[in-house]
Computed example of a mutant assay.
Amino acid sequence: MNSSTVSEQKQPAAHTPRNFTLVLVICFILLGLCVIASLALGSRVTSFRELMDGLFHPDVQSFGANVVRKRISRTVFSLMCGAALGVSGALMQSVTRNPIADPSILGVNTGAALFVVCGIAFLNISSASQYIWLALAGAALTAVFVFGIGSMGRGGATPIKLVLAGAATSAALSSLVTAIMIPRSYVMDKFRFWQVGSVGSGSWDNISTFLPFLIAGMLIAVLTAPALNALALGDDVATGLGVKTGFLRFISAFAGVVLCGATTALAGPIGFIGLLATHVIRLILGPDLRFVIPMSAIAGAIILTVADVIGRLLGSPGELEVGVVTAFIGAPILILLAMRSKVRSL
């Protein structure tokens, strides 16, 4: 299925949501406020003057201005990771037709973390580009394994079976990560942030390494969104509309794995962003993935950046890793969603 075929599919939702423009404006305002907060707040709160000096006056070398400059790469990295996880969650929910699918819930990011830890411990890898390729392999294999386990038995891959398979797989893989790291202090010291996830590793080198994977995953997600709308009507209807359902699931899942795996390789297994972002956008704009996918990117960027700022404020003078904050917020929401009767399918 090429891009022209995808773009020609009939859409279940043919019109732009009436409140889309308003939501888009509000999201961009919130995004701007999040960026300002990320640059200004932390263990060292900067003044407005220091913020302006750090952004627009490179000749000013005050301590506050330098703090702002150091936070720029972290903020950009946080926005990119949040966008990637938001879109990855939207894709996984659509492909599995599971409204509570998320890279963390399905164990995908834990599989990515395991492969990278194995590479560090046994292959002596040390560069971000190597981390990403190992993370992609681990994420892909874990996704296939979880979906295969969840598809066994009567009823196929139901939402509850996938969640249970993902939770069990994630627990097992987390134990393996711990078993590999404990006797190897150099691995634990260097990558202990993976236990919870952190955007503190944000640097321009990591951003440049991450960027091609982010662009590729986002592009595939946007191009497949119309066909995923057709898939939401059921395989038979989608096939009648000319959608190659098998290839569509493969390429969409591939994009989700790329986004999740690359993020995990550089930031660790940050959970619940895809779940939170996608549900908020669906609640406001409806199910049309032509709008859900790009808006989930913005919502994911906002949520992760806010969580990072909260972690820095709560953990001052150190910081509370962003993975702890997102888990604290996301776990109760997951429980509420799992209790709803509508969780059976999208």
Rank of each mutant, 00 (worst) to 15 (best):
A13H: 14
I180T: 08
L164E: 12
S201H: 04
G197C: 12
G271D: 10
V324A: 14
A83C: 08
C118Q: 04
T21A: 14
G64Y: 06
D53Q: 15
F291H: 15
V324M: 12
V280G: 12
S345Y: 09
M295R: 02
L79V: 05
L313T: 15
T21D: 12
L233D: 11
V25I: 15
I251L: 06
L283N: 15
G300T: 08
A277T: 06
V343A: 13
A139S: 09
L248Q: 06
P183Q: 05
G318N: 14
A171D: 05
V60F: 04
C260V: 10
S94K: 00
T158H: 06
T326H: 04
T209R: 07
K342W: 14
F122P: 08
Y131F: 15
V237T: 14
V116G: 05
F250V: 09
A238Y: 07
A137P: 01
V68G: 01
L336Q: 14
P103S: 11
V117R: 00
G318M: 09
A137C: 12
P212I: 14
T16H: 07
G300K: 03
Y131V: 07
A221T: 03
L211Y: 10
L79Y: 00
S345M: 12
E321A: 15
M188T: 08
V322T: 01
I215H: 01
G242S: 04
L162A: 10
T326G: 05
L231K: 00
R97G: 11
Q11A: 13
I36Y: 11
A140R: 00
W204K: 00
E319L: 05
T75P: 01
S104C: 05
G268M: 07
F210C: 04
S174G: 15
T75A: 08
P159G: 08
V144G: 02
G86Y: 02
G111P: 06
V343S: 06
P332A: 11
V60T: 11
K10G: 08
V67W: 10
A121E: 05
F77A: 01
